[in-house]
Amino acid sequence: TSIVNVSSSLNVRSSASTSSKVIGSLSGNTKVTIVGEEGAFYKIEYKGSHGYVAKEYI
């Protein structure tokens, strides 16, 4: 489990790309479970499925 480190919110994306669809967002200090990594993104558990967040904010 890791913590989201942002002051406002962090986009959760459908794939490991800044141009991919935003499927949701997480607020600062939210706990997330990392299940993998791809480039500059972590794959996380998100709403019963998976999403991707930028590593620099975790």
Results as ranks from 00 to 15, higher is better:
Asn11Leu: 15
Lys47Arg: 10
Glu37Ser: 08
Gly36Pro: 00
Ala40Asn: 12
Gly51Asp: 00
Glu45Val: 12
His50Leu: 09
Gly36Ile: 02
Ala16Glu: 02
Glu45Ile: 14
Ile3Leu: 10
Ser7Ala: 12
Val6Phe: 06
Thr18Phe: 15
Ser8Met: 13
Glu45Pro: 04
Tyr52Phe: 10
Ser14Asp: 10
Glu45Ala: 09
Ala16Trp: 04
Val35Thr: 06
Ser25Arg: 15
Arg13Pro: 01
Gly28Thr: 11
Leu10Phe: 10
Val22Cys: 08
Ser2Pro: 09
Ala40Thr: 08
Thr18Ile: 13
Gly24Arg: 02
Gly48Gln: 06
Asn29Val: 08
Ile34Ala: 01
Ser14His: 10
Thr1Ala: 13
Ala40Met: 11
Val22Asn: 03
Ile58Pro: 03
Leu10Thr: 12
Leu26Asp: 00
Ser27Phe: 10
Leu26Asn: 00
Val53Ile: 13
Val22Ser: 06
Phe41His: 03
Ser8Arg: 14
His50Met: 08
Val22Ile: 14
Ala54Thr: 06
Glu45Lys: 10
Lys43Ser: 03
Ile34Asn: 00
Lys55Gly: 01
Asn11Ile: 15
Gly48Arg: 04
Ser17Pro: 01
Thr33Asp: 05
Lys47Ala: 11
Ile3Cys: 15
Thr33Met: 10
Lys47His: 09
Ser19Asp: 14
Lys43Met: 10
Val22Trp: 05
Ser25Ala: 10
Glu38Val: 09
Ser15Thr: 09
Val32Ile: 11
Gly48Leu: 05
Val4His: 08
Val32Ala: 04
Val53Gln: 00
Ala40Arg: 08
Thr33Ser: 07
Thr1Trp: 05
Glu38Asn: 06
Ser49Trp: 07
Ser17Thr: 09
Ser19Phe: 09
Ser2Thr: 14
Asn5Lys: 11
Ser19Leu: 11
Glu56Tyr: 09
Lys21Trp: 09
Thr1Glu: 11
Leu26Gly: 01
Ser27Arg: 13
Lys55His: 03
Val12Ile: 09
Glu38Ile: 08
Thr33Pro: 03
Lys21Ser: 12
Phe41Thr: 01
Val53Ser: 00
Ser25Gln: 15
Phe41Glu: 01
Tyr42Asp: 02
Lys55Asn: 02
Ser49Arg: 12
Thr18Ala: 13
Glu45Tyr: 08
Asn29Leu: 12
Ser9Met: 12
Thr1Leu: 10
Tyr42Lys: 01
Ser14Leu: 13
Gly51Ile: 02
Asn11Asp: 15
Glu45Phe: 10
